[in-house]
Structures are given as structure tokens and as C-alpha cells.
Amino acid sequence: MIYNKLPNTDIKVSEVCLGTMTFGQQNSESEGHAQMDYAFEKGVNFFDTAEMYSIPSHKETYGSTEKIIGSWFKSTGKREKVVLASKIAGPSPIFGYMREKLDFSPESLQYALDNSLKRLQTDYIDLYQLHWPERKTNIFGQRGFKVKDDQWEDNIHQVLETLDGFIKAGKIKAIGVSNETPWGLMRFLEESKKYNLPKIATVQNPYSLLNRLFEVGSAEICYRENVGLLAYSPLGFGVLTGKFLDEKVKHPKARLNLFPQYNRYSSEQSTAATKMYNDIASSHGLTLTQMALAFVNQQPSVTSTIIGATSIPQLKENIESFRIKLSTEIFDLIEAVQAVYPNPAP
């Protein structure tokens, strides 16, 4: 396992991050514990969660993932050996049941953090992230920015001041953003430079063979400002495993079948691109899963790739895929597909 530093910190994280959003809904507590046991044994020291998990969020399951991680910490005593990332939810239209007031006011930040700490049975979080911008901006399935009902007032200075207080109190160590645009990322960085406030260490955004929009604006920002990408959905909700290519084979427990509303990777263009990527992988003795994860892992801006699984066999294949290094020939073939179907899953 390779370990990278979270930018601007001394915190070392594995190149594989265990995503946990299935714990509490698709996976039971015992299954979640088994995944954390296995990942930890394989050298994964980085776990990512959020107050809203499991997904989709319901009143009955809100915070369930953090509770499962907390019970694992309590039973194993391994809290100090794990780099823990969590998130406060912003006002996203795709979220289900959440806290009553979804904003990043000092009161909401304090409330969300304190409750996450209780559920996680810890007194600090290594990386605390803003899960969604407060302002109305790009959403899943939308490539371009459209002004709509814009009542947001810039409060980024206040947000950073509040997070700075958490750092000084020892409740968090570093900060990040998630589902953020290039403008939003630069706005945070600008404010931290100007007023000597905590700097954004990471941005957690989607990145995969089917969605490379990060490269358009955010990649240069991350390179020049030393911000790391935590790439999520590297397998596009399982689409980039190739398991949906054979329409005769059904997968009743797959996320896309259980939750058809999460269909951003299911367009005709995405399916066509996936078939072409699958052919490339097969012709080079790889599974599509291996190639898709290796592609993300070899990107220079990626600090860690967040993987998610609902079974140990899936988790095993995902983790082992990080041993693979793709050749220049494979990258050239991937670029040829990207030219035909550029970012089919916005």
C-alpha cells in the first residue's frame, strides 16, 4: 500500500480510501465491521463517511454509518490508527432526510460536528468536509452553471473562522470541500490566504472514466494550489465493473437497481463508452474494474481514491486493483474513447 500526505498536513493516508455510505442500509453493522477489518488488514488507514450516510438518507437511517464506524472504533480500539474523514451536509436537492437547517452557519457547523463526534465515539475528526455548497450551483446531471434563485450571501470567511475554532479546540485537524466547483474552491483558497485562515486540503469530487470534468478547471487549481483530489465514484455506481453490459444478467442487489434515481452513469452514451472501455481492458488481460480504478489512481492530482463495496469479494478486487499500473498504450486508447464520448456522465 502506498501512502500520501494530505496536502499541507503531516497526515499520511493510504492511496485507497474506504467509502462507507452503504453501512446501515445495504450493509448491516456486522458487514460494515467486516469491511473495515479487511480493509485495515490490507493497509487501508483512511475511512470516509458523512453525517447524512447511509444513502439514500431517511429519518430512520440518518447517521447510521457514523454509528457503525463508532462501534467499530469502540470494539477494536483502532481509532488512533485510522485517518477519519466526515462531512457536514449542505443544502443539496438530492439529499433525503437531513437536519432541519442545512447551512454552514456557526450554529449548524457546531451542531453537526458535535453530533458526528458522538456517533463516531471519538473526540476528533482528521478531515472535516463541507459536503455540498450552500449556494445553488451545478448539480448531478448538469454540466454547466445556470443562475437560478440566487439568494446566497458570501459567508466563506465566517465558515473558515468557525472551522479554525474547531481546529484550535482539537476537534478537527484539516478541512476539505466536496462536490465543489472551481470557483468555490478558489474562493475558499483566496480567503484563507488573505486572512491566514485554514487552507482547504482536499476536494472530494466525482472522477472516473465516465466523468472527467474535474480536469477542466479544478485539476490546474489543485496542482498550483497544492490541494488533493479525493476521487469518489471511480466505478460509477458499479457501471464501470461492466456487470450491467449483459442485459440478460440481473443484479437485484446492485445500487442502481435498488436506487434507480441515481442514474447519472446510465445514459446511452455512458453505456456505449463503457462497452469500449471494457473491450480495451479485456484485450489487455484486465477486468474493467481493474482498469477503471488504476486509471483514477494514476492521475497526478489524486491523493486517495474512495472505493465502496457491499461484499468482501468486491472489496478485495477493488483494493487489489491498485497494484496495477496502466501502460501508455492503454492510456492512449482510453483517450480515444474520451474523444468520442467526452464525460458522458456529468
Rank of each mutant, 00 (worst) to 15 (best):
I2L: 15
I2V: 14
Y3E: 08
L6H: 04
P7Q: 10
D10F: 04
I11Q: 10
I11L: 13
K12I: 05
C17V: 01
T20E: 06
T20G: 01
G24M: 11
Q25F: 08
Q26T: 00
S28L: 03
S30Q: 04
E31Y: 07
H33D: 06
M36T: 00
E41F: 10
F47P: 04
S54H: 10
I55C: 06
I55N: 07
K59L: 12
K67W: 06
I68D: 08
G70H: 00
G70F: 03
K74N: 09
S75L: 14
R79C: 15
K81Y: 13
K81R: 12
V82F: 11
V83L: 11
L84T: 02
G96V: 01
E100M: 02
L102K: 13
D103I: 02
S105Y: 00
S105T: 06
P106V: 07
Y111H: 15
A112E: 05
A112P: 04
L113D: 05
D114W: 11
S116R: 07
S116Q: 11
K118M: 14
K118T: 12
R119N: 04
R119P: 05
Q121P: 07
D123N: 14
I125H: 03
Y128V: 04
P133H: 03
T137V: 13
Q142P: 05
F145C: 00
V147Y: 08
V147L: 06
Q151F: 13
I156Y: 03
V159R: 15
V159N: 06
L160D: 00
L163C: 03
D164P: 08
D164N: 15
F166V: 04
F166L: 02
I167R: 10
A169P: 05
K171R: 06
I172Q: 03
K173T: 08
G184M: 05
G184F: 06
L185G: 01
R187K: 14
L189M: 03
E190G: 09
E191P: 03
K194I: 07
Y195H: 15
L197R: 10
P198Y: 01
A201P: 01
V203Q: 02
P206I: 01
Y207S: 00
V216Q: 13
V216Y: 10
G217K: 08
G217R: 12
S218T: 14
E220I: 15
R224T: 15
N226E: 15
Y232K: 06
Y232A: 05
L235A: 05
V239H: 07
V239L: 15
G242R: 00
G242M: 06
F244W: 09
L245Y: 05
L245P: 10
D246N: 15
K248I: 00
K253C: 09
K253V: 14
A254W: 06
R255V: 13
L258T: 09
L258R: 12
F259E: 13
Q261G: 02
Q261M: 10
S270Y: 05
T271Q: 10
A272M: 08
M276E: 15
Y277E: 02
S283H: 02
L286F: 10
L288H: 03
L293M: 15
L293D: 11
N297I: 00
P300D: 15
P300T: 14
S301N: 13
S304P: 02
A309Y: 11
T310V: 11
K316Y: 07
S321H: 07
I324W: 08
K325R: 14
T328V: 14
I330D: 09
F331H: 11
D332T: 12
L333G: 08
I334S: 08
A336P: 02
Y341I: 14
N343I: 10
P344F: 06
A345S: 12
